[in-house]
């Protein structure tokens, strides 16, 4: 019983980080209807960002996240202008291929530079004991930061001018232009924020598990499952979807082999697409 509780708690904490990763994917989809296939490799870059700053320069991993976030934002803006903007009005296949090529470039360069051997950020804050459950503090911090960033994103989208522009462009790009909103710049900014969330999520994951340059792919797939669970284009749904996935990952290995986790996840993915394609939390459709 205690063992189950620990697993659930563990999964729940991890779920916040999954949610954060998925939010990057889902924000970009929600604003510009682009499935960003470079999401996974960008998560990997976040992992390596924290790793390099920590191992190379001795910067505290949580401080390193700030630099990783800025890098992620700028990288996303560059990717938008280089690869996405020219095909933004083309059919979905074009944007899929464009972001897929970005993924191939990042993965190719990353493998050449870092090889595919595993790394880890050797930085532990110890653990926290609650009854018979022992929780690594790294996980608690990662969950707390993810929550904080989600709240920050929510407030940003609601309360700031550029946040409001992002929602307006997502809702009706043409009308936003007519009201004087430079929509191309707003799309670039949205893409940047999406990739920023991905790199930060990657950086947080790096403080929890060992990883390789290819590790982001796993989280990209999780992000898709979460996006479908929570409704693509819905940041709060992404967080809730992340929590559900996290808990499932905590519970499933307690009664069946852990290798079954992705199988169950993708059965869920297909089932939801069949039964409730708008997501469990009824996302908007514009």
């Amino acid at each position: 019983m205690d063992f189950l509780l620990t697993s659930i708690l563990d999964g729940l904490l991890l779920g916040f980080v999954y949610g954060l990763a998925a939010m990057g994917l889902t924000l970009i989809w929600g604003v510009m209807n682009v499935i960003n296939l470079s999401h996974g490799p960008i998560i990997s870059l976040g992992m390596f960002g924290v790793y390099l700053l920590f191992s190379g320069l001795g910067i505290n991993p949580y401080v390193a996240l700030i630099f990783v976030a800025i890098f992620g934002l700028l990288l996303g803006i560059v990717i938008y202008f280089v690869a996405v903007n020219r095909v933004i009005n083309a059919p979905h296949l074009s944007t899929l291929l464009a972001t897929f090529s970005v993924a191939m470039i990042i993965t190719g360069l990353g493998t050449a530079v870092f090889s595919a051997s595993p790394r880890n950020v050797d930085y532990s804050l110890g653990s926290f004991t609650l009854g018979s459950a022992t929780i690594p503090i790294n996980r608690i911090v990662a969950a707390a930061l993810s929550m904080l960033i989600t709240a920050g994103l929510y407030i940003y989208l609601r309360r700031t001018r550029s946040g409001r522009y992002i929602r307006a462009v997502a809702n009706n790009r043409n009308a936003a232009e007519l009201m004087g909103v430079p929509s191309v710049r707003i799309l670039a900014l949205s893409f940047g924020i999406g990739t920023m969330l991905a790199t930060v999520a990657g950086g947080l994951i790096a403080t929890l598990f060992p990883f390789t340059i290819l590790a982001g792919g796993t989280y990209e797939l999780k992000s898709f499952v979460i996006g479908v669970l929570g409704g693509l284009g819905n940041p709060v749904g992404a967080l809730l979807g992340g929590l559900i996935l996290g808990v499932l990952e905590g519970i499933i290995p307690t009664f069946m082999p852990a290798t079954w986790v992705p199988v169950i996840e993708f059965i869920l993915f297909v089932l939801i697409l069949m039964v409730r394609p708008q997501g469990l939390f009824g996302a908007k459709k514009s």
């Binding site: 409001r164 522009y165 929602r167 307006a168 997502a170 809702n171 009706n172 043409n174 009308a175 936003a176 007519l178 009201m179 004087g180 909103v181 908007k284 514009s286």
Partner: peptide
Amino acid sequence: RQLFTDMSVEENLEMGASP
């Protein structure tokens, strides 16, 4: 009309005041 249908009336008006 091309309103921002997901936004409130007042938010639409605030969007109008973007220039």
